[in-house]
Design a protein around this nucleic acid. Structure first.
Lengths: 249, 249
DNA sequence: TGCCTTGATTGATCTGAGTCAAAGCTATTA
DNA sequence: TAATAGCTTTGACTCAGATCAATCAAGGCA
């Protein structure tokens, strides 16, 4: 998909700067946005918000108005079933985008809850659309980012159906690891922000099964786990555990 | 998300007409494309292709060049694992769009195989992008269609993880039914184009379990199933079988 | 027509994960 | 610092679904 170039006479002086380029740079560069486009996007994200641990960024059913770039912190997205139990649909870390769940409609389809004190940049979607009228490539790129994130999750979930508990957990850990290293964090040593129950909900397992699977991986010296602190000792064997599920990239 | 309007002086005389509006109309109207835009899209789909039963529309790893609107027929998409077994990732019927798997990259991530003699309209993506330069709303709408289809699948798959066999099958049947009725087919009476094994692969079940679940639903008089022919006798109770999984719309 | 392949059904057995329960650990708050 | 509520781990038991296996039905072809 070839890139469109920006018009030379582009006037962006009317856009107020405030949040600088946020964490959007890492997000946008691989997709092919140039510096100027990132700058515009960053400037768009004019509104900064702090969300305390346990706080909600958006609710299921609420009007879709903004996308959110996570500056710092960690979120889960979840839906509330009729019976009151909640199903975790995803985890979202610093540098990633939130609000995509509403992209095909007018409402958010899930809640977004902070799992630690977090900070986000709000990107008003109306403004994004307005500017896209001048710079069509912007929306194009944005859609590309979005479908990439959606497809990434989709790919993982698809395969869970036929996986055993240990394979699911290995897949989950490697997915986290890969995303962390992309953001400049350690690949082998990280902190789980979510509980065993939340992991279980996401993976379609019970919390006890998650715990047992962690213990088993530790017994085999593949990982070391101390409460929420994970260390991957043998990433090769961890990848083996994933099974022959291709296409997790 | 408000619509953009088409420029009044739009010149589309250079676009050759051939495939008329295909089956795209039903696809596009709900998303908000106007008649003129649909016309353009339809004209874009210049190349018509017949795919015989068992034939491939695209392969995993092949270059992404076109989207395909299914004029008639039925497809499965699947990925080949390292061990040679295949994982079905989706089913696609008349009036739906194929090729979305490649939307975030340059390559197709799965194979698309016809489950019966089929006919598709090819929509060259390069042309789509070219025209989008004149009519930015077009690409916007298209992305919206795409994310809607992806999100729809995603939502279903997410919940499979925690479902029992019978719930999965009920969900599957109701999903098929809903899509068929949208295309003007019977809601309660349809033909499965795929085998028990393919259903199982898609749902994360073994073919025997699929067969048993069908039998059980028949014993309870909820459906009648004769080989590939399905009749839904009691859609209310079938929906009950889905369990309390919200958000399947 | 009968052979052969492919897909569907059904039964018997086994195993992985859910369920229930108890006890240990951590973090938060008074 | 103690009290308490929320996580985590581990064990014992149960059951849904995988596995193995046999049989049956339908369609293609010599």
């Amino acid at each position: 998909m070839p890139l469109q170039t920006l018009p030379d006479d582009l006037d962006i002086s009317h856009i107020r700067s405030s949040c600088a380029t946020c964490s959007l740079r890492e997000l946008c560069l691989p997709v092919g946005l140039n510096e100027e486009e990132i700058q515009i996007l960053g400037n768009l994200a004019s509104h900064k918000r702090k969300i305390p641990r346990g706080g909600y960024l958006h609710h299921a059913g609420s009007n879709f108005q903004s996308l959110f770039a996570i500056r710092s912190g960690f979120f889960k997205t979840c839906i509330l079933e009729q019976d009151g139990r909640q199903q975790v649909t995803g985890f979202h870390m610093t540098g990633e985008l939130l609000g995509l769940d509403a992209i095909s409609g007018e409402m958010h389809t899930c809640d977004a809850v902070a799992l630690e004190d977090s900070e986000v940049c709000e990107i008003p979607f109306a403004k994004l659309e307005e500017i896209s009228r001048t710079i069509p490539s912007l929306m194009h790129h944005f859609h590309k980012i979005m479908s990439r994130e959606i497809v990434r999750d989709h790919g993982v979930m698809l395969l869970l159906g036929s996986m055993k508990a240990e394979e699911r957990l290995a897949t989950f850990l490697l997915n986290l690891s890969r995303r962390l290293v992309m953001r400049g964090y350690s690949e082998y040593n990280f902190n789980l922000r979510m509980t065993r129950e939340e992991i279980g909900s996401y993976l379609g397992l019970k919390l006890e099964t998650v715990s047992r699977a962690f213990s088993k991986l530790q017994d085999e010296n593949i990982i070391t786990i101390d409460n929420k602190q994970v260390q991957i000792n043998d990433i090769g064997r961890l990848k083996m555990k994933m099974g022959n599920s291709a296409c997790l990239r």
